[in-house]
Write a protein that binds this DNA or RNA. Structure first.
Length: 226
DNA sequence: TGTTGATCATAT
DNA sequence: ATATGATCAACA
C-alpha cells in the first residue's frame, strides 16, 4: 500500500469516495490487514480498517482522527434500508472535575464539529469479508442538530455534577445518551455521589442514538452501489 | 425485535 | 485506568 496521508479535506474526501462499493476483503487486502471471521473479538476492526485506508493517525490519543484537518472519522453500520444498526460512541465522560465545563468547550461538541461518516454494511447475515463500504458523508451539525445535542448534554452533565450518575440510564436524552463504556463490569472510576462524596462507578460514555444518525444518513441520501 | 447494559482488543 | 475503535447479547 502506498503511504497515504490526506493534506486537505478534498483529498480525504476523494480517497473515501474511492472506497465506496468495495468489500472489506478488498480494502483489507489493499492495506494488508488480516480479516477476522467476525467482530465478536474485534469490535473495532472495521473502524481500524477504514482508519488505515484513509491515513488517520490519532491512535489512542484524545484527538480527532485528522487533527490538522479538524475532522473526526466514524464508521456507521447500516442495514439494507440504509438505517443505522448501532448507536455511535462519541467520547468517554469525565465524571469528576466538571466545574466550569460548558457545551462550547465540551469533548462532545469538539468531536462532532466535523465528522466524516463512512456507512458500512453491518448486517450479521453478511459474512464480514463480503460487507461493503458505502459513500462518505462529510457532516457538520446544523444549528438545530447542535441545539438537540446541547440540550441533552446539559441535562446529563447536570445530573452528573449533582451526584446522580447512578440514576442515569440509556433512556435519558433524546439524541445523546449515556451508557457504560468499559472493558468489563469490574472497571471502576471516580464520580460524585448522592451526598457529594466520591464514589466508584462504571465508566460511562456518550453515544448518539440511532434516531440522530438516521437524520444525517437520510439528509445525504446515502446508498450503496451494487 | 429493539434497546440497554455489558463487553472485546489495543495503546499509553 | 483511560483513551482509541466499536458491536455484542441479554432482556424487556
Amino acid at each position: 500500500m502506498p503511504n497515504f496521508y490526506p493534506s486537505n479535506e478534498q483529498e480525504l474526501l476523494n480517497r473515501a469516495k474511492l472506497a465506496a462499493g468495495y468489500s472489506f476483503a478488498e480494502i483489507a487486502q489493499y492495506v494488508n490487514m488480516p480479516i477476522p471471521a467476525n467482530l465478536n473479538k474485534q469490535k473495532g476492526w472495521v473502524g481500524n480498517l477504514i482508519e488505515t485506508y484513509l491515513g488517520a493517525n490519532a491512535g489512542s490519543k484524545a484527538e480527532r482522527d485528522f487533527a490538522s484537518l479538524g475532522i473526526e472519522l466514524k464508521t456507521i453500520p447500516i442495514n439494507k434500508q440504509g438505517k443505522p444498526l448501532e448507536t455511535t460512541f462519541v467520547s468517554v465522560i469525565p465524571l469528576m472535575a466538571n466545574h466550569g465545563v460548558i457545551w462550547e468547550t465540551s469533548h462532545v461538541k469538539y468531536k462532532l464539529s466535523k465528522v466524516l461518516w463512512i456507512p458500512i454494511e453491518g448486517e450479521r447475515s453478511i459474512p464480514l469479508a463480503e460487507r461493503k463500504v458505502g459513500h462518505p458523508i462529510l457532516w457538520t451539525p446544523t444549528f438545530e442538530q447542535e441545539q438537540q445535542l446541547k440540550q441533552d448534554w446539559q441535562e446529563l452533565m447536570d445530573m452528573i455534577a449533582l451526584g446522580q450518575v447512578e440514576k442515569i440510564t440509556a433512556r435519558y436524552g433524546t439524541y445523546l445518551q449515556i451508557r457504560p463504556k468499559a472493558a468489563n463490569g469490574k472497571a471502576l472510576t471516580e464520580a460524585i455521589g448522592e451526598n457529594g462524596e466520591i464514589i466508584l462507578t462504571r465508566p460511562r460514555g456518550f453515544y448518539l442514538k440511532k434516531s440522530f444518525t438516521l437524520q444525517i444518513l437520510q439528509n445525504s441520501m446515502t446508498h450503496f452501489i451494487n
